[in-house]
């Protein structure tokens, strides 16, 4: 963070934080999805403006993204407060007020019946299943068999830098060429695989508190149970399906965003 001014974060640091915020329905970074319109830094105060593909995107999902963006940015030591502004959304007033006045969803939307944690948990679970697919494919490509994969425990994974997992919140993303060692068959042998798909999976597996203990099974059915060997292929199919679902919805969102931008350009030309 060489470019950091004495009293505020760098733009790169803010962007890096925002990159960790995902659209919960698509499990993709809101930076990659190009939702961010602007980042303004004034000393320890950071303002972020963002826009979703349509004015009708789920307010619950918009809320989660706004809250996550606020919390991610405020976790930077150089930041005092983050101000989040959602634009061109049918419920931008409630969301902006709620997020910046630090209300709960139920307080911001008195006509909704309760909070957003249940649906957030459900979307995290779907993201976990989709990410597991990539992790398992990585292991299959490395030559591991189904028998070994369903039997893996958290302790069988050895990251090059053992502190990397827990310290990731404060460190940079895993480099693309990092590898991870997997000890299979009662640790009788190890294979080395690309770390990124495993890291991504572990991140969600931890968030959903599914895999926390070193002795716990690493991979699970969508319902969270250990995978019986005979169900291995079906669980793979369900993981693939979870990915197709997310990327299909992503296709709809991309299209709607393009249509909206096209319309705004036309209006600007008038």
């Amino acid at each position: 963070m060489t470019a950091q001014t004495s009293d505020g974060p760098t733009r790169a640091a803010v962007r890096d934080r925002l990159d960790r915020v995902t659209d919960p329905e698509l499990d993709r970074s809101i930076v990659d999805l190009e939702y961010i319109d602007s980042i303004e830094i004034d000393g320890g105060r950071v303002s972020v403006t963002f826009t979703l593909p349509t004015a009708w995107c789920s307010p619950a999902f918009a809320w989660m993204m706004a809250v996550d963006a606020r919390d991610e940015i405020e976790s930077l030591p150089a930041v005092e407060t983050a101000r989040i502004t959602l634009t061109e959304h049918m419920h931008e007033t409630e969301i902006n007020r709620g997020v910046n006045e630090r209300l709960s969803f139920a307080e911001a939307f008195p006509d909704a019946d309760g909070d957003v944690e249940a649906v957030r948990g459900e979307l995290d679970e779907k993201a976990r299943v989709a990410r597991q697919y990539d992790a398992v494919e990585t292991l299959l490509e490395a030559g591991l068999h189904a028998e070994a994969i369903v039997d893996l425990r958290l302790r069988d994974l050895e990251v090059a830098d053992p502190g990397a997992n827990t310290a990731r919140a404060d460190s940079t993303e895993t480099a693309t060429d990092d590898t991870i060692a997997i000890y299979a068959h009662d640790r009788s042998f190890a294979v080395s695989v690309p770390a990124a798909p495993l890291e991504r999976y572990l991140e969600k597996a931890r968030e959903t508190t599914l895999v926390t203990d070193p002795d716990e099974r690493l991979f699970r059915t969508p319902e969270g149970e250990p995978i019986p060997l005979e169900s291995f292929d079906l669980v793979r199919r369900r993981g693939r399906l979870a990915q197709v679902n997310m990327s299909s919805q992503g296709g709809i969102c991309d299209g709607l965003r393009e249509a909206r931008e096209g319309r705004l350009e036309e209006t600007a030309d008038d």
Binding site: P59, A60, A106, D113, V119
Partner: peptide, 10 residues
Amino acid sequence: GPTIRPLNRD
């Protein structure tokens, strides 16, 4: 189909 209205659940 897609979630539209402000519901805290799906």
